[in-house]
C-alpha cells in the first residue's frame, strides 16, 4: 500500500522540479538571447530558409507547361493557378496509386516506430538500473553498432530473411519463406527495427540513467520490483525522450527509400517510392514532383506539430546528460 502510495507522488514531484528548473533556465537564456539584433537575424534566416519551400509550393500550383518553361517567381507577373498537378499526382498509378502508397507508408511507419521504442525502452532500463555481468561491455557493443552503415547490412539481412541461417547443417533460422517480389510488411518492420535499435537504446539509456537515484532507491525500499519501477516511474518520466525519439524515427522511416525498395515490393511500396517514379522512366512528367512532395509531407508535418513541444526538451535531455 505504502509502495504504491509513494511512486506516483515522488514521480510527480520530480517531474515538477524538472519542469521548474527547465523554465528557469529557459527564462534565463531567453533574457540573454532576446535582443533586437538577434530577433531580426532569426527572422531573416527563417525567411531565407523558407524561400525554396515556398517556391516549391507555388510551383505545385502552376500549369505544367509554365513549370517547364519558366521559373516560379514569374508566377507573380502571370498568375495562372491550377490544381491539375495534384489531381494528376493522385491519379498516378505505378502498380499502386499514390493514395495506396500513402496508406502503405503509414502501415510501415507506425509499427517501425513503436517496435524499436518498446524494445529499446526495456533494454535502456536494463542497461541503466539492472546490474548484471558484462553490462558495460554489452552497452559499448550496442553503442558502437551505431557506426555500422546500414547499407553494408542490406545484403546479409536480405539473405537472412530469404535463406535463413544454417550452422553446421543445423538450421538456426529457416528464413521467412518470402521469396519473390511478394513480401509482406514483416520484413521492413524488422529491418527498420534493427537499424533503429542502437541509437534508440543509446538515447533512451542516457535519459533513463539520469533519473535521480533517490526515487529508484525509495521504490526498492518500498518493495517495488523492476517491473513496477519500469512501468510506474520510468515510463511516465521518460515521456519526453520517447516522444523525441518517436519523431526522429517517424521522420526517418517516412523519408526512407533505400530500405523500402530493398525489403518491400509491388503492392507494398511506400510513398517515397512513388515519388521517385512520378517523373517516369525518362523524366517526362517531372513537373508532378512538387505536388507529390507536398502530399508526402502531410503526415510528417502532423506528427511534428503535435509532438514538437516534447522535441527540444527530450533531445536536450538525452544529449547532455550522458
Amino acid at each position: 500500500m505504502i509502495a504504491t502510495d509513494i511512486d506516483p507522488r515522488s514521480a510527480r514531484r520530480v517531474e515538477r522540479a524538472t519542469r521548474r528548473a527547465e523554465s528557469a533556465a529557459f527564462n534565463d537564456s531567453k533574457k540573454r538571447l532576446s535582443s533586437k539584433g538577434a530577433t531580426i537575424a532569426a527572422i531573416v534566416i527563417a525567411v531565407f530558409w523558407t524561400i525554396p519551400t515556398f517556391g516549391l509550393l507555388v510551383t505545385s500550383f502552376r500549369q505544367p507547361a509554365d513549370i517547364n518553361t519558366s521559373g516560379w517567381w514569374t508566377f507573380f507577373a502571370h498568375p495562372d493557378l491550377t490544381i491539375q498537378n495534384y489531381t494528376n499526382t493522385l491519379n498516378f498509378t505505378d502498380t499502386i496509386t499514390v493514395g495506396q502508397s500513402f496508406v502503405n507508408s503509414l502501415v510501415i511507419v507506425i509499427p517501425a516506430t513503436l517496435i524499436p521504442i518498446a524494445v529499446a525502452l526495456l533494454a535502456a532500463y536494463a542497461f541503466a538500473w539492472v546490474d548484471f555481468r558484462g553490462k558495460n561491455l554489452l552497452f559499448i557493443a550496442v553503442f558502437s553498432l551505431q557506426v555500422v552503415p546500414l547499407q553494408v547490412a542490406l545484403v546479409p539481412l536480405l539473405s537472412l530473411f530469404s535463406n535463413g541461417i544454417t550452422i553446421g547443417g543445423w538450421a538456426v533460422f529457416p528464413g521467412l519463406n518470402l521469396n519473390g517480389l511478394d513480401g509482406s510488411f514483416g520484413r521492413i518492420w524488422l529491418a527498420h527495427t534493427m537499424f533503429a535499435l542502437p541509437l534508440a537504446i543509446f538515447l533512451l539509456h542516457n535519459f533513463i540513467s539520469a533519473l535521480p537515484v533517490d526515487i529508484m532507491e525509495a521504490a526498492r525500499i518500498d518493495g517495488a520490483s523492476h517491473g513496477q519501477i519500469f512501468f510506474r516511474i520510468v515510463l511516465p518520466l521518460a515521456r519526453p525522450a520517447i516522444a523525441s525519439f518517436a519523431i526522429l524515427q517517424f521522420l526517418w522511416v517516412w523519408n526512407d527509400l533505400l530500405v523500402a525498395t530493398i525489403f518491400t515490393s509491388g503492392g507494398n511500396f511506400p510513398i517515397t517510392k512513388l515519388l521517385t517514379d512520378l517523373s517516369g522512366t525518362y523524366g517526362t512528367t517531372w513537373y508532378l514532383l512538387s505536388a507529390g512532395t507536398f502530399l508526402a509531407i502531410i503526415a510528417p508535418l502532423i506528427v511534428f506539430f503535435s509532438l514538437q513541444r516534447f522535441f527540444v526538451r527530450g533531445l536536450l535531455a538525452g544529449a547532455t546528460k550522458g
Binding site: L158, S159, L178, I262, G266
Partner: peptide, 24 residues
C-alpha cells in the same frame, strides 16, 4: 503478371541477387 518497376533497378538487382530475394 505482377510487374514491379524500380528506377534504381540497375543497382538494386545486384543486392537482390546476392540476398536471394528474386522475382520470377
Amino acid at each position: 503478371i505482377k510487374y514491379t518497376g524500380d528506377g534504381n533497378f540497375t543497382s538494386n538487382i545486384a543486392t537482390k541477387i546476392q540476398g536471394s530475394d528474386l522475382p520470377n
